[in-house]
Protein backbone atom coordinates (compact mmCIF):
# COMPACT_ATOMS: atom_id res chain seq x y z
CA UNK A 1 0.00 0.00 0.00
CA UNK A 2 1.60 3.19 -1.09
CA UNK A 3 1.34 6.35 0.96
CA UNK A 4 -0.92 9.27 0.18
CA UNK A 5 1.20 12.31 -0.53
CA UNK A 6 -1.49 14.81 -1.38
CA UNK A 7 -4.92 15.12 0.14
CA UNK A 8 -7.34 17.72 -1.15
CA UNK A 9 -10.39 18.29 1.05
CA UNK A 10 -13.44 20.37 0.09
CA UNK A 11 -11.29 22.79 -1.85
CA UNK A 12 -13.28 25.85 -2.89
CA UNK A 13 -12.36 29.04 -4.68
CA UNK A 14 -14.80 31.83 -5.48
CA UNK A 15 -13.34 34.79 -7.32
CA UNK A 16 -15.10 38.02 -6.39
CA UNK A 17 -16.42 40.26 -9.14
CA UNK A 18 -15.78 43.87 -8.25
CA UNK A 19 -17.96 46.52 -9.84
CA UNK A 20 -20.36 49.34 -9.27
CA UNK A 21 -19.58 52.93 -8.32
CA UNK A 22 -18.02 52.17 -4.95
CA UNK A 23 -16.08 49.13 -6.26
CA UNK A 24 -17.80 46.61 -4.07
CA UNK A 25 -18.35 42.92 -4.61
CA UNK A 26 -21.28 42.38 -6.94
CA UNK A 27 -20.95 38.67 -7.53
CA UNK A 28 -18.77 35.61 -7.47
CA UNK A 29 -17.25 33.31 -10.04
CA UNK A 30 -17.53 29.85 -8.57
CA UNK A 31 -14.37 28.47 -10.14
CA UNK A 32 -13.76 25.50 -7.86
CA UNK A 33 -16.57 24.15 -5.77
CA UNK A 34 -16.01 21.54 -3.07
CA UNK A 35 -13.35 19.42 -4.74
CA UNK A 36 -11.81 16.52 -2.84
CA UNK A 37 -9.38 13.83 -3.93
CA UNK A 38 -6.30 11.92 -2.81
CA UNK A 39 -3.07 11.37 -4.64
CA UNK A 40 -0.90 8.34 -3.82
CA UNK A 41 2.83 8.22 -4.34
CA UNK A 42 3.74 7.16 -7.88
CA UNK A 43 0.24 7.75 -9.23
CA UNK A 44 -0.59 9.68 -12.35
CA UNK A 45 -4.00 11.22 -11.98
CA UNK A 46 -5.64 13.18 -14.75
CA UNK A 47 -8.08 16.06 -14.52
CA UNK A 48 -10.12 16.53 -17.68
CA UNK A 49 -12.66 19.17 -18.54
CA UNK A 50 -13.48 21.98 -20.92
CA UNK A 51 -12.17 25.50 -20.69
CA UNK A 52 -13.45 27.36 -17.66
CA UNK A 53 -14.24 24.25 -15.63
CA UNK A 54 -11.64 25.13 -12.99
CA UNK A 55 -8.87 22.64 -13.71
CA UNK A 56 -6.07 25.21 -13.71
CA UNK A 57 -7.48 26.92 -10.61
CA UNK A 58 -7.22 23.59 -8.79
CA UNK A 59 -3.56 23.37 -9.78
CA UNK A 60 -2.82 26.89 -8.61
CA UNK A 61 -4.63 26.29 -5.33
CA UNK A 62 -2.61 23.14 -4.64
CA UNK A 63 0.61 25.11 -5.07
CA UNK A 64 -0.80 27.87 -2.84
CA UNK A 65 -0.34 30.43 -5.59
CA UNK A 66 -3.79 31.86 -4.90
CA UNK A 67 -5.76 32.12 -1.68
CA UNK A 68 -8.50 29.52 -1.31
CA UNK A 69 -12.03 30.42 -0.21
CA UNK A 70 -12.26 27.23 1.78
CA UNK A 71 -10.94 23.71 2.20
CA UNK A 72 -7.58 22.13 2.84
CA UNK A 73 -4.62 20.89 0.87
CA UNK A 74 -2.57 18.43 2.88
CA UNK A 75 0.82 17.69 1.37
CA UNK A 76 2.89 15.01 3.14
CA UNK A 77 0.76 15.36 6.23
CA UNK A 78 0.91 19.16 6.53
CA UNK A 79 -1.79 21.65 5.66
CA UNK A 80 -0.01 24.02 3.31
CA UNK A 81 -2.51 26.83 3.75
CA UNK A 82 -1.22 27.36 7.30
CA UNK A 83 2.35 27.99 6.09
CA UNK A 84 4.19 31.27 6.08
CA UNK A 85 5.94 32.41 2.91
CA UNK A 86 9.29 31.08 4.08
CA UNK A 87 7.88 27.68 4.90
CA UNK A 88 6.04 27.65 1.60
CA UNK A 89 9.27 28.26 -0.27
CA UNK A 90 10.76 25.17 1.37
CA UNK A 91 7.78 23.00 0.52
CA UNK A 92 7.72 24.24 -3.09
CA UNK A 93 10.95 22.30 -3.62
CA UNK A 94 8.82 19.22 -3.31
CA UNK A 95 5.99 20.34 -5.59
CA UNK A 96 6.64 21.77 -9.03
CA UNK A 97 4.55 22.79 -11.97
CA UNK A 98 4.89 22.56 -15.75
CA UNK A 99 2.82 25.21 -17.48
CA UNK A 100 0.81 25.03 -20.63
CA UNK A 101 2.63 27.58 -22.72
CA UNK A 102 6.38 27.03 -23.01
CA UNK A 103 6.65 30.26 -24.98
CA UNK A 104 5.80 32.48 -22.02
CA UNK A 105 7.40 30.34 -19.31
CA UNK A 106 10.84 31.94 -19.65
CA UNK A 107 12.28 35.38 -19.32
CA UNK A 108 13.20 36.18 -22.93
CA UNK A 109 16.35 38.02 -21.85
CA UNK A 110 17.80 35.08 -19.91
CA UNK A 111 19.69 32.21 -21.50
CA UNK A 112 18.63 28.70 -20.57
CA UNK A 113 21.60 28.54 -18.20
CA UNK A 114 20.62 31.76 -16.44
CA UNK A 115 17.00 30.65 -16.12
CA UNK A 116 17.98 27.32 -14.59
CA UNK A 117 20.74 28.64 -12.31
CA UNK A 118 18.29 31.11 -10.76
CA UNK A 119 16.67 28.20 -8.94
CA UNK A 120 19.87 27.39 -7.04
CA UNK A 121 20.28 31.01 -6.02
CA UNK A 122 16.70 31.36 -4.78
CA UNK A 123 16.87 28.11 -2.83
CA UNK A 124 20.32 29.12 -1.43
CA UNK A 125 22.09 25.98 -2.58
CA UNK A 126 25.70 27.21 -2.69
CA UNK A 127 27.43 23.87 -2.35
CA UNK A 128 26.26 22.56 -5.72
CA UNK A 129 28.34 22.69 -8.88
CA UNK A 130 25.68 24.58 -10.79
CA UNK A 131 27.23 24.12 -14.21
CA UNK A 132 27.58 20.36 -13.92
CA UNK A 133 24.10 20.06 -12.48
CA UNK A 134 22.52 22.02 -15.32
CA UNK A 135 24.36 20.00 -17.97
CA UNK A 136 23.18 16.81 -16.28
CA UNK A 137 19.57 18.05 -16.25
CA UNK A 138 19.65 19.09 -19.89
CA UNK A 139 20.95 15.67 -20.87
CA UNK A 140 18.20 14.03 -18.84
CA UNK A 141 15.53 15.79 -20.88
CA UNK A 142 17.22 15.00 -24.19
CA UNK A 143 19.04 18.28 -24.85
CA UNK A 144 22.75 18.96 -25.27
CA UNK A 145 24.96 21.05 -22.94
CA UNK A 146 25.29 23.59 -25.80
CA UNK A 147 21.61 24.42 -25.38
CA UNK A 148 22.38 26.10 -22.06
CA UNK A 149 23.72 29.14 -23.94
CA UNK A 150 20.59 29.52 -26.06
CA UNK A 151 17.98 32.19 -25.57
CA UNK A 152 14.34 31.01 -25.48
CA UNK A 153 13.58 32.37 -28.94
CA UNK A 154 16.30 30.13 -30.40
CA UNK A 155 14.57 26.98 -29.18
CA UNK A 156 11.59 25.26 -30.78
CA UNK A 157 8.39 24.72 -28.79
CA UNK A 158 9.30 21.13 -27.99
CA UNK A 159 12.81 22.07 -26.86
CA UNK A 160 11.41 24.84 -24.66
CA UNK A 161 9.01 22.41 -23.04
CA UNK A 162 11.99 20.11 -22.36
CA UNK A 163 13.74 22.98 -20.56
CA UNK A 164 10.55 23.65 -18.56
CA UNK A 165 10.60 19.99 -17.52
CA UNK A 166 14.30 20.22 -16.62
CA UNK A 167 13.51 23.22 -14.44
CA UNK A 168 10.69 21.33 -12.73
CA UNK A 169 12.91 18.37 -11.78
CA UNK A 170 15.91 20.45 -10.70
CA UNK A 171 15.09 20.24 -6.99
CA UNK A 172 14.08 16.57 -6.93
CA UNK A 173 10.38 17.16 -6.30
CA UNK A 174 7.88 14.56 -5.16
CA UNK A 175 4.90 15.94 -7.03
CA UNK A 176 4.73 17.65 -10.42
CA UNK A 177 1.57 19.33 -11.63
CA UNK A 178 1.43 19.22 -15.42
CA UNK A 179 -0.99 21.83 -16.70
CA UNK A 180 -1.74 20.96 -20.34
CA UNK A 181 1.95 20.26 -21.01
CA UNK A 182 1.43 19.30 -24.64
CA UNK A 183 -1.54 21.28 -25.88
CA UNK A 184 0.62 24.04 -27.38
CA UNK A 185 2.71 21.48 -29.27
CA UNK A 186 2.35 19.62 -32.55
CA UNK A 187 1.35 15.96 -32.46
CA UNK A 188 4.75 14.62 -33.47
CA UNK A 189 6.38 16.61 -30.65
CA UNK A 190 3.57 15.82 -28.21
CA UNK A 191 4.43 12.12 -28.25
CA UNK A 192 8.12 12.91 -27.63
CA UNK A 193 7.25 14.98 -24.56
CA UNK A 194 4.78 12.41 -23.20
CA UNK A 195 7.40 9.68 -23.50
CA UNK A 196 9.99 11.90 -21.81
CA UNK A 197 7.63 12.64 -18.91
CA UNK A 198 7.06 8.93 -18.46
CA UNK A 199 10.77 8.10 -18.42
CA UNK A 200 11.43 10.79 -15.84
CA UNK A 201 8.58 9.56 -13.69
CA UNK A 202 10.06 6.06 -13.54
CA UNK A 203 13.57 7.34 -12.92
CA UNK A 204 12.70 9.66 -10.04
CA UNK A 205 9.59 7.96 -8.67
CA UNK A 206 7.45 11.04 -9.27
CA UNK A 207 3.77 11.63 -8.72
CA UNK A 208 1.94 13.50 -11.46
CA UNK A 209 -1.24 15.52 -11.51
CA UNK A 210 -1.97 15.81 -15.21
CA UNK A 211 -4.40 18.46 -16.40
CA UNK A 212 -5.67 18.18 -19.94
CA UNK A 213 -8.69 18.60 -22.15
CA UNK A 214 -7.64 15.73 -24.41
CA UNK A 215 -9.12 12.41 -23.35
CA UNK A 216 -6.97 10.28 -25.63
CA UNK A 217 -3.81 11.74 -24.08
CA UNK A 218 -5.24 11.14 -20.58
CA UNK A 219 -6.07 7.56 -21.51
CA UNK A 220 -2.48 6.98 -22.63
CA UNK A 221 -0.78 8.78 -19.79
CA UNK A 222 -2.81 8.40 -16.59
CA UNK A 223 -3.99 5.54 -14.44
CA UNK A 224 -6.79 7.47 -12.77
CA UNK A 225 -8.92 10.29 -14.08
CA UNK A 226 -11.30 12.90 -12.70
CA UNK A 227 -13.84 14.63 -14.92
CA UNK A 228 -14.58 18.22 -13.97
CA UNK A 229 -17.57 20.28 -14.99
CA UNK A 230 -18.19 23.82 -13.75
CA UNK A 231 -15.90 23.57 -10.75
CA UNK A 232 -17.08 20.17 -9.62
CA UNK A 233 -15.78 16.66 -10.04
CA UNK A 234 -18.61 14.73 -11.66
CA UNK A 235 -16.88 11.39 -12.10
CA UNK A 236 -13.72 9.78 -10.82
CA UNK A 237 -12.41 6.34 -11.78
CA UNK A 238 -9.48 4.37 -13.11
CA UNK A 239 -8.88 4.94 -16.81
CA UNK A 240 -10.11 1.45 -17.76
CA UNK A 241 -13.38 1.88 -15.87
CA UNK A 242 -14.02 5.38 -17.08
CA UNK A 243 -13.48 4.69 -20.75
CA UNK A 244 -15.22 1.32 -20.78
CA UNK A 245 -18.10 2.21 -18.53
CA UNK A 246 -18.64 5.94 -18.29
CA UNK A 247 -21.58 6.65 -16.02
CA UNK A 248 -22.02 10.38 -15.91
CA UNK A 249 -23.82 11.76 -18.97
CA UNK A 250 -21.16 14.45 -19.30
CA UNK A 251 -18.34 11.91 -19.37
CA UNK A 252 -20.26 9.98 -22.00
CA UNK A 253 -20.62 13.11 -24.11
CA UNK A 254 -16.92 13.91 -23.77
CA UNK A 255 -15.92 10.41 -24.84
CA UNK A 256 -18.29 10.43 -27.79
CA UNK A 257 -16.87 13.72 -29.05
CA UNK A 258 -13.45 12.20 -29.68
CA UNK A 259 -12.81 11.72 -33.37
CA UNK A 260 -10.76 8.59 -33.89
CA UNK A 261 -8.36 8.92 -36.83
CA UNK A 262 -10.02 6.09 -38.72
CA UNK A 263 -12.31 6.91 -41.66
CA UNK A 264 -14.19 3.63 -41.18
CA UNK A 265 -15.23 4.64 -37.70
CA UNK A 266 -17.13 7.79 -38.53
CA UNK A 267 -19.36 8.74 -35.68
CA UNK A 268 -22.94 9.65 -35.87
CA UNK A 269 -22.47 12.55 -33.55
CA UNK A 270 -25.05 13.13 -30.88
CA UNK A 271 -23.67 16.45 -29.72
CA UNK A 272 -24.43 17.90 -26.34
CA UNK A 273 -26.84 20.72 -26.72
CA UNK A 274 -26.08 24.24 -25.66
CA UNK A 275 -23.09 25.77 -24.00
CA UNK A 276 -21.51 25.59 -20.59
CA UNK A 277 -23.51 27.88 -18.26
CA UNK A 278 -21.72 30.82 -16.72
CA UNK A 279 -19.94 29.98 -13.43
CA UNK A 280 -21.34 33.25 -12.07
CA UNK A 281 -24.94 32.02 -12.15
CA UNK A 282 -24.64 28.32 -11.54
CA UNK A 283 -27.87 26.46 -12.25
CA UNK A 284 -29.55 25.15 -9.09
CA UNK A 285 -29.37 21.44 -8.36
CA UNK A 286 -27.11 19.40 -10.61
CA UNK A 287 -24.87 21.82 -12.55
CA UNK A 288 -25.15 19.69 -15.67
CA UNK A 289 -28.96 19.46 -15.88
CA UNK A 290 -29.27 22.26 -18.47
CA UNK A 291 -27.52 20.10 -21.07
CA UNK A 292 -28.47 16.63 -19.88
CA UNK A 293 -30.99 14.47 -21.67
CA UNK A 294 -31.69 12.45 -18.52
CA UNK A 295 -32.55 15.54 -16.48
CA UNK A 296 -35.67 15.24 -14.34
CA UNK A 297 -37.29 17.21 -11.53
CA UNK A 298 -34.85 16.04 -8.87
CA UNK A 299 -31.86 17.21 -10.95
CA UNK A 300 -33.21 20.73 -11.03
CA UNK A 301 -33.70 20.85 -7.28
CA UNK A 302 -31.13 18.72 -5.51
CA UNK A 303 -27.41 18.60 -6.00
CA UNK A 304 -26.24 14.99 -6.47
CA UNK A 305 -23.72 13.55 -4.03
CA UNK A 306 -20.77 11.51 -5.25
CA UNK A 307 -21.60 7.83 -4.90
CA UNK A 308 -19.18 4.91 -5.11
CA UNK A 309 -20.61 2.65 -7.82
CA UNK A 310 -17.89 0.04 -7.93
CA UNK A 311 -14.58 0.12 -6.07
CA UNK A 312 -12.97 3.51 -6.58
CA UNK A 313 -15.45 4.54 -9.26
CA UNK A 314 -17.31 7.61 -8.03
CA UNK A 315 -20.05 9.44 -9.88
CA UNK A 316 -22.17 12.44 -8.95
CA UNK A 317 -25.44 11.86 -10.79
CA UNK A 318 -28.99 11.09 -9.65
CA UNK A 319 -29.64 8.77 -12.56
CA UNK A 320 -26.45 6.75 -12.86
CA UNK A 321 -28.29 3.50 -12.06
CA UNK A 322 -30.68 4.07 -14.94
CA UNK A 323 -27.78 4.83 -17.24
CA UNK A 324 -25.90 1.78 -16.03
CA UNK A 325 -28.87 -0.52 -16.70
CA UNK A 326 -29.24 0.89 -20.18
CA UNK A 327 -25.63 0.03 -20.87
CA UNK A 328 -25.82 -3.59 -19.74
Amino acid sequence: MSTTILKVKNLTKFFPIIGGVIRHKIGEVKAVNNVSFNLKKGDTIGIVGESGCGKTTVARLILNLIEPTGGEVIFQGQNIFSFSRGEMRKIRKKMQMVFQDPYSAFDPRFTVFESLSEIFVIQKMENVNIKEEIFRLLQLVGLKPEHSDYYPYELSGGQKQRVVIARAITLNPELIILDEPTSALDVSVQSQILNLLRNIQHKFDLTYLFISHDLSVINYFCNKVMVMYLGKIVEEASCEDLFQQPLHPYTKALISSIFVPDPDKRLTIVPLEGDVPSPINLPPGCVFHTRCKFASKICREKEPEAAEVTTNHYVACHHFKKIQEKQD
Binding site: D186, S188, Q190, L194, N195, Y220, I258
Partner: peptide
Protein backbone atom coordinates in the same frame (compact mmCIF):
# COMPACT_ATOMS: atom_id res chain seq x y z
CA UNK B 1 2.97 6.86 -41.02
CA UNK B 2 4.69 8.62 -38.13
CA UNK B 3 1.88 11.15 -37.70
CA UNK B 4 -0.74 8.43 -37.46
CA UNK B 5 1.31 6.50 -34.90
CA UNK B 6 1.85 9.59 -32.74
CA UNK B 7 -1.80 9.82 -31.76
CA UNK B 8 -2.72 7.91 -28.61
CA UNK B 9 -5.32 5.26 -29.42
CA UNK B 10 -8.55 5.15 -27.48
CA UNK B 11 -9.45 1.49 -27.91
CA UNK B 12 -6.40 0.06 -26.19
CA UNK B 13 -3.84 1.03 -23.61
CA UNK B 14 -0.45 1.51 -25.23
CA UNK B 15 2.80 0.85 -23.43
CA UNK B 16 4.82 3.39 -25.35
CA UNK B 17 3.83 5.95 -27.89
CA UNK B 18 5.79 6.11 -31.12
CA UNK B 19 7.33 9.51 -31.81
CA UNK B 20 8.95 11.18 -34.79
CA UNK B 21 12.37 12.39 -33.59
CA UNK B 22 13.38 16.01 -34.09
CA UNK B 23 11.10 18.86 -35.04
CA UNK B 24 9.77 20.68 -38.10
Amino acid sequence: EGLLQCIPKMDRKQKKLKAIPGSV
